[in-house]
């Protein structure tokens, strides 16, 4: 017992000393600049800057206002759902999609921002690549840019990765740092690209599908969160280039169908349902440009309408 008490005393003191050394180190590395950037950014590839569209959209989103549709998901989401097109049908859309947002990140975005009071329908854009990731990239972005400390902390804890401690510390250290401005046209969280793909998409090697178990677990959490609040949720996959791996996506589709079986949730998978050209409707090998978005959004709205899932149009 005496040995245990001694250990405990020493352990607590060590933790205190470590915390002081850690904060001092992070403070120094953050405030020392090399070529205009904090030295801290050179210690790892997991740091992302403060500002940009992610920062702007969480400040622009008004939790007190009622949106017809809120979109969550990765770059497919914030590049693929144009509020103007939804607006033409009388639906207010806000896009909370962010770079590489995984279901784990989406869960905390949902939990901190979306509720029955401010949202009529959640469109969750699903993309297999984000479900294979550990969520570090998105957590790095959101931990700097989301306006909710709780959501940032939740994501960092969910990572179970020591780098998450650095991310939270950086969030705290950079509170007074001015955010960098948003580049390119954007509105209600949507970022538009009008250029087209210059090089044709070549058929890549077939890759196995390995979904991250944590992401699958958080996808279920998202479903449960919406079900608990009677918040309508629809999974969507936007157009893929024809040159992409059809079989891989078919396996992904089957997995999602299995996940939502019995929940009453619809999965509108338009990956290969559009009459799109790999060259004209994409700005890179993965993302739709404005012309592709126009086609996709129109088809999605028709699908939602046919299923009776469209929220009532604003008056």
């Amino acid at each position: 017992m005496k040995a245990f008490a001694r250990l405990l005393r020493k352990g607590l003191l060590f933790l205190l000393v470590t915390a002081v050394v850690y904060v001092g180190t992070m403070f120094t590395l953050y405030h020392l600049h090399v070529h205009g950037h904090p030295l801290l950014y050179r210690t790892g590839d997991h740091y992302q800057g403060k500002g940009g569209l992610s920062y702007a959209k969480f400040r622009e989103f008004d939790p007190a206002r009622r949106y017809g549709v809120v979109v969550i998901g990765s770059s497919h989401a914030y590049r693929g759902y144009d509020p103007r097109i939804f607006g033409e049908r009388g639906i207010d859309l806000f896009n909370l999609g962010t770079s590489a947002q995984t279901p784990m990140n989406s869960y905390y975005v949902l939990k901190s921002h979306v509720d029955t009071g401010n949202c009529g329908l959640v469109l969750f854009d699903l993309y297999e690549n984000t479900m294979e990731q550990d969520g570090l990239e998105s957590t790095s972005d959101l931990s700097r840019n989301i306006d909710s400390d709780r959501a940032a902390l939740g994501m960092c804890l969910a990572l179970k990765d020591p780098r998450a401690i650095d991310l939270m510390t950086l969030r705290w250290l950079s509170r007074s740092e001015p955010p960098r401005p948003v580049e390119g046209p954007h509105r209600s969280g949507y970022a538009e690209r009008t250029d087209s793909l210059r090089t044709p998409t070549r058929k890549g090697q077939e890759r196995p599908l390995r979904l991250d178990s944590m992401q699958v677990r958080y996808l279920r959490e998202c479903i449960a969160y919406c079900a608990d609040r009677h918040l309508p949720l629809v999974f969507v996959t936007h157009y893929y280039p024809q040159a992409s791996d059809h079989q891989r996506h078919a396996r992904f589709h089957a997995l999602i169908e299995r996940e939502i079986a019995g929940t009453g949730i619809h999965y509108i998978d338009l990956a290969y349902a559009g009459r799109v050209d790999d060259h004209d409707h994409f700005y890179d090998h993965n993302h739709l440009n404005a012309a592709g978005v126009a086609l996709f959004n129109a088809q999605l709205l028709d699908s939602l309408s046919a299923l009776g899932l469209l929220p009532p149009a604003r008056r």
């Binding site: 050394v21 850690y22 180190t25 992070m26 790892g44 020591p162 780098r163 650095d166």
Partner: peptide, 8 residues
């Protein structure tokens, strides 16, 4: 410990 967390 700090080295592990910061530059690991």
């Amino acid at each position: 410990v700090v080295a592990l967390v910061v530059v690991g």
